[in-house]
Design a binder for these strands. Structure first.
Lengths: 211, 211
DNA sequence: GGCCCGAATCTGAACGGCCAGTCAACTCGA
DNA sequence: TCGAGTTGACTGGCCGTTCAGATTCGGGCC
């Protein structure tokens, strides 16, 4: 019990720091994130951060993948609840639209994704991590499609992994635009566009457009 | 003549610096770009950089939009040469796939795009600039579609601007993946996927898949 | 032409702030 | 008593920016 609790606490401190780091990065951006900001957010001294992580760079990489893991866990938890593949797809899209769901004072995971991309361009460990995260993301989409086909909701057609890649890429591209507050693309519209294109690519009847 | 030449030279130095900055950013990344790197690349002293630009930050923003302008100029120059809309679309896609065309020792403009996104999240002037650049990009696609419809190559259907947004987002998303050297998506395959999805969304007969 | 002057261009040393990472010392629970 | 956890002052280097002066250039004047 004692040992468990101690380990537990250690891990908590780890996660606490990772979580704080992710929040700070989201708010201030990777480039403007100082160790002391993270420490302050934890209510802890700067030295302690370096006691738990060997360097700032390493911490940042871990924080980014940590945050993405959180998103993924939430996504799969929610999808598991849904009955129909169509509902799943809808929810998956909704969770992907920046700023659509204000619940949980949700950070914009997408801002972190872009930071991941920049890092991954030069940092090999981040590049590797990124590919894992990305594959998981596309696979989630493909699984929904598989499921829809097995229940007969979606017709057979293009390979599901291929569709996962296509729809995933579409969501990525649109999400960036929405995240940037592009005046021509609101969150609600992005949701609509995604559903629409997904319907056409997968081959099911689209939702009626709201008047 | 004298005055013209003088102005010309000044602008040359300006552009020279912008160009050098863009190259350095592409190679080392925005975060690792020092003023002295840019100066060295120009064969000039660091002080001079600040003589032409009021601050490092401003220079970086200008360099990024400068590079994007270059890409756009090249794109529209090339498209103007093409006869059919289909050729235009193909070329547009080819120019968008990172690393597909090695000609011109082409930098990967996409790396710069991602840096633009990160900056735009926090820097209002960059955000504004980004929206302009992005609109221009999507509009280029929409124009090709319009053209194809006016010549009868493409059928009528979904609004061309809407399609520009959809196809543009798809290209963005895929380009990021390719840029990251994702093992599951080669440049050639991205080209194929883009053509394929574009064909389905616009509604023309796809290219035959090469054996 | 040859000379001069002022402005534009350019240099590189020096300044100053910032911040990652170190470390010696302290706390406290087991 | 021991050692994991924690502190916060300190340091060492880095880099944007400034600045005082050197150099170059172009055009007016004899």
């Amino acid at each position: 019990m004692g040992r468990t609790k101690q380990k537990q606490q250690t891990r908590d401190r780890h996660q606490e720091i990772l979580d704080a780091a992710a929040r700070v990065i989201t708010e201030r951006g990777l480039a403007e994130t100082r160790i002391s900001d993270i420490a302050e957010r934890c209510g802890v001294s700067p030295g302690l951060i370096l006691y738990y992580f060997e360097s700032k760079d390493r911490l940042l990489v871990e924080a980014l993948t940590f945050a993405n893991d959180q998103f993924y866990l939430r996504l799969s938890r929610e999808l598991r609840r849904m009955r129909s593949a169509r509902q799943q797809l809808t929810r998956l899209i909704e969770l992907s639209v920046p700023g659509l769901l204000p619940e949980f004072e949700r950070l914009d995971e997408w801002a972190l994704w872009i930071e991941i991309w920049v890092l991954a361009l030069r940092d090999p460990s981040m590049a590797k991590e990124r590919e894992v995260l990305d594959r998981r993301w596309r696979q989630s989409i493909a699984e929904v499609i598989h499921r829809g086909r097995s229940t007969g909701e979606f017709p057979e057609g293009t390979d599901a992994d291929e569709l996962g890649m296509q729809i995933g890429a579409l969501i990525d591209g649109l999400a960036v635009q929405v995240l940037m507050n592009d005046t021509t693309l609101s969150p609600a519209r992005m949701r609509q566009v995604c559903m629409d294109v997904a319907a056409r690519l997968i081959g099911f009847a689209p939702e009626p457009v709201p008047a």
